[in-house]
Amino acid sequence: MDENQEEDLSRAEVLEAPQMGLTRVAAHMCLDIFDSARHRRKLYVGEWLPEPVPDRTTTVVSTPVRALDRITLGESVNTALTVVPESLTPAARVAFVLRNMFALSFGEIAAIVGRTPQMCRKLASSAWRHVRHRRRREIASDVHTRIVTAFRAACDTGDLTTLVSLLDPDATTLSDGGGKVRAALNPIHGAERTARFMLGVLVQHPELEATLQSVNGKTGLVLRHDTAVSGVVSFHVQNEKITDIWVVLNPDKLRSWNRS
């Protein structure tokens, strides 16, 4: 089948079954975007993190929040869950969304992603296990907020001992500067190294003010210089210990936080 025949077939599908046809077109576009993004990230300077989303009640955002934005701000779509899919292949991510969000059959998904129905079932199941594992590890919002608040207070006073006590021994910090601003190029592992890194950032930049604020639906820290947001920090807490810290410093990913 040549390209013209495929194009005619796609048009016929859209006319005969609009919902399925448009879903297929959108899914193919997503696959192309994922593949392109994966290639760009190979050239990305340092660690790559998803763009943090401000809560709809955040005062720095003056524009109305659309319905789709409200979905991304939900409790189930926090930083932990947006980081996990990045480890999946584009086909697995699309299979997961089409199955769990649009309830497509695995036969329909197979026609879209170019895999067998059996393989699509495995891809979707694997993706769901990743997400479900993260959800099981989530703690109550008030506990999360209490731990992050204590973390901020320890940073303010330079209390290294307290900071270390709040961190899991295997805690990991990722810092995303995108080559635009200074950031750690590699992951930082361990409670003490993470604590010293966070204190070092604040000591080197005394002009920054860290405030508690909702980040992707969970309490995080927003770093401001005067009124401009210079960084956003989000946390994953398990068993009342911080296991992951994500620091986004790339100004290109902070535009939604700096809208006037």
Rank of each mutant, 00 (worst) to 15 (best):
D32M: 12
I33E: 11
I33Q: 11
I33S: 09
F34L: 14
F34S: 07
D35L: 12
D35F: 08
S36D: 12
A37Q: 15
A37T: 13
H39F: 02
R41E: 12
Y44H: 09
Y44A: 06
V45G: 08
G46D: 12
E47W: 05
L49Q: 09
P50F: 09
E51A: 09
P52F: 10
P52R: 09
V53T: 11
D55L: 06
V60R: 15
V61D: 06
V61Q: 10
S62Y: 12
T63R: 14
T63C: 06
P64G: 02
V65L: 09
A67K: 08
L68Q: 10
L68N: 08
T72L: 11
G74W: 06
E75W: 06
E75Q: 10
S76L: 13
N78R: 12
L81I: 13
T82H: 10
T82R: 15
T82P: 10
V83M: 13
V84I: 15
P85A: 01
E86Y: 02
E86H: 07
E86L: 15
L88Q: 05
T89N: 06
A91T: 08
A92S: 13
R93P: 14
V94C: 10
A95P: 04
A95Y: 01
L98T: 01
M101E: 12
F102T: 05
A103W: 05
A103I: 02
L104T: 05
S105D: 04
F106T: 00
F106H: 03
E108T: 05
I109P: 02
A111P: 05
A111K: 14
I112P: 02
I112Q: 09
G114M: 01
T116R: 08
T116V: 02
P117T: 08
P117A: 00
P117F: 02
Q118H: 14
M119C: 08
M119Q: 14
R121P: 00
R121M: 05
R121I: 00
K122Y: 07
K122P: 03
S125E: 03
S125Q: 11
S126P: 01
W128L: 09
R129C: 00
H130C: 14
V131I: 15
H133W: 07
R134K: 14
R135I: 08
R135P: 05
E138P: 00
A140Q: 05
T145I: 04
R146I: 01
R146W: 06
V148S: 04
T149R: 14
F151K: 15
F151M: 14
F151V: 13
R152Y: 04
R152H: 05
R152M: 02
R152A: 05
A153M: 07
A154M: 09
A154E: 08
